[in-house]
Simulated assay, not measured.
Amino acid sequence: MHSIDGRREGGAQDEADSAAFETHRAFLIGLAYRMLGSHAEAEDVVQDAWLRWQDAARGAVRVPRAFLAKTVTRLCLDRMKSARAQREVYFGPWLPEPLLDGDVPSVDGPAPAVELASDLSYAFLLALERLSPLERAAFLLHDVFELDFAEIAAALQRTPASCRQLAARAREHLREARPRFAVTADQGERLVRAFVQASHSGDVETLKSLLAEDAQLLADGGRRVATIGVPILGRARLLKVYMGMLRKHGPAPDTRLEFMRINGLPGVLLRTQGGVPIQTIALEPDAGGRICGIYIVRNPDKLRRFLND
């Protein structure tokens, strides 16, 4: 039996529709997170896309991946209008919601695209944030998720030539954000442990030896908790400000530490003894193994996903 919009009715079709959607879920969550910088919002957007997928006339959906990419992109662009207005009045640095390995499923495909798709580092995500919404969408859809420009044009309601220009401009702006330097899991954990131990003991000389001369620190508290309200650039200033923050707002002696990878970087999650998340710290190493970026998220709204871990 068919409905008037051309969709077959019945449980078998519902199961087929669900299975078809699930094959694209990893792709959709990855796209939405990179657009919005929030895993929670990405999941909401994908759920909204699922509702639209259920209502779609199947005869009009020739390429499900392209249809769903268009749907998620439009939903994200709508959300970004209000998000950008909110960030204009956001207190202090804004950082994406921290992710653990596996939070965004891996993406299959040719090596260059997979390398980009796996890059969830703060440096890369912040570089995406500096693009216009349309530039970000065109770049992600073409360079990361490999849609052709005709499909992207349908999603962005622009011409293919215009979308090609948007992606090219985005690529140029992003060039400075790459490459990032990967370290092994063991190297990363040693770096984080050394940083945390030196921080808690007030060992300024060890901290100095761990930091690159051009190191930067970004701390996101969202006015919800005390933190450093401006970006800190340069090793000497960073040490002065960071040690001052530790003296005033350092973690309690019984704070629990959980070492993990955060947005693909070596990091640590700090909790109270009761399990309440306090903050995440992710460290970005440079080519010489020194820390060139410290990313601290203390905004409780961005730590909710750790409440039940």
Score class of each variant (00 low, 15 high):
182 A>L: 07
233 L>G: 01
42 A>P: 07
15 E>Q: 10
203 D>R: 05
306 F>W: 06
202 G>K: 15
37 G>A: 13
155 A>C: 01
109 G>K: 02
201 S>M: 14
126 L>D: 02
176 E>L: 03
242 Y>R: 09
183 V>N: 00
255 T>K: 02
69 A>W: 01
208 K>W: 13
192 V>P: 08
273 Q>M: 06
196 V>W: 12
221 G>M: 04
95 L>D: 12
270 L>I: 05
256 R>W: 01
46 V>G: 10
289 G>W: 00
47 Q>K: 10
125 L>E: 15
165 Q>G: 06
68 L>A: 04
191 L>W: 10
99 L>D: 07
36 L>E: 14
232 I>Y: 01
234 G>C: 08
277 P>H: 06
67 F>V: 09
117 A>I: 13
225 V>Y: 02
78 D>P: 12
82 S>L: 12
151 E>Y: 03
88 E>Q: 15
59 G>Q: 13
45 V>K: 09
47 Q>N: 04
62 R>V: 10
92 G>Q: 02
251 P>A: 02
271 R>F: 15
210 L>Y: 05
154 A>H: 13
111 A>V: 13
13 Q>V: 07
163 C>K: 02
275 G>T: 07
168 A>N: 05
229 G>I: 11
126 L>K: 11
158 R>Y: 00
245 M>K: 11
30 G>D: 14
1 M>A: 13
40 A>H: 11
16 A>H: 13
281 I>F: 09
173 H>L: 11
185 A>T: 00
103 D>W: 00
232 I>M: 06
187 Q>G: 06
97 E>D: 07
131 L>T: 03
302 K>M: 11
127 A>G: 13
11 G>K: 14
249 H>T: 08
57 A>I: 04
19 A>V: 15
253 P>L: 02
258 E>M: 11
16 A>V: 12
241 V>A: 09
218 L>C: 05
67 F>A: 15
266 P>M: 07
277 P>R: 03
142 H>W: 06
285 P>H: 03
105 P>L: 10
34 R>D: 15
161 A>R: 11
150 A>P: 02
75 L>T: 07
33 Y>T: 14
14 D>H: 07
9 E>H: 07
230 V>E: 03
301 D>Y: 10
28 L>S: 06
54 Q>E: 11
120 L>Y: 09
62 R>K: 08
291 I>G: 13
156 L>K: 06
258 E>W: 05
125 L>A: 14
97 E>S: 04
216 Q>H: 04
270 L>M: 13
139 F>W: 12
283 L>P: 12
283 L>M: 07
157 Q>A: 07
134 L>V: 07
22 E>C: 05
224 R>D: 04
77 L>S: 08
95 L>M: 09
209 S>I: 04
59 G>P: 04
302 K>I: 12
263 N>W: 07
232 I>T: 11
56 A>C: 08
197 Q>R: 14
159 T>S: 15
60 A>R: 15
294 I>Q: 15
246 L>Q: 11
25 R>N: 06
176 E>C: 01
126 L>P: 01
167 A>P: 02
169 R>Q: 11
189 E>R: 12
42 A>S: 09
188 G>Y: 05
237 R>H: 13
294 I>R: 14
162 S>Y: 05
299 N>S: 05
262 I>W: 04
216 Q>L: 06
17 D>I: 10
188 G>T: 01
55 D>Q: 09
